[in-house]
Amino acid sequence: MSEKISFELNGQSITITLSPDHRFLDVLRKHLNIVGPKEGCGEGECGACSVLMDGYIVQSCILPLGSVHGKKIMTIEGYRETKRFKALQDAFLTEGASQCGICTPGMIMATEYLLSHNPHPTDEEIRHGLAGNLCRCTGYNMIIKAIKRAAKEGEGLW
């Protein structure tokens, strides 16, 4: 029933023996003590649980563990060690883009995905790039400003 599942998590190889029908978010939070990704809805809608899989943004709450086998996963825990993160953190602070903060780790991962494919996005591109990450506090405008600021001040990072 359980299978050996191997993947890379924030640069470290992990092998875990568990049934592949676990939600990857639970594997992170419960089994690996990675609690940066949050659960807001458990149905793929809010993005609080967003992580990167092979560089692509995914919602870990509906990601079966089975899909992670052989993949590279990056969560906020790994990403916060990067220069890009620092640029985003500064910009989010300066623009006031995080209020209650529950959406923010997911928002940061979504931003990384967006900027890594489009280093100079327009407002419209940012708005659609964040479509899967709901925020109830900020009304998004400060997040959009922060992303534009990071793109500018972090020129060359993405």
Partner: peptide, 11 residues
């Protein structure tokens, strides 16, 4: 382009 969200499109 308007299907779900980037994360869902990646999955």
């Amino acid at each position: 382009r308007v299907f779900a969200s980037p994360a869902i499109r990646n999955m």
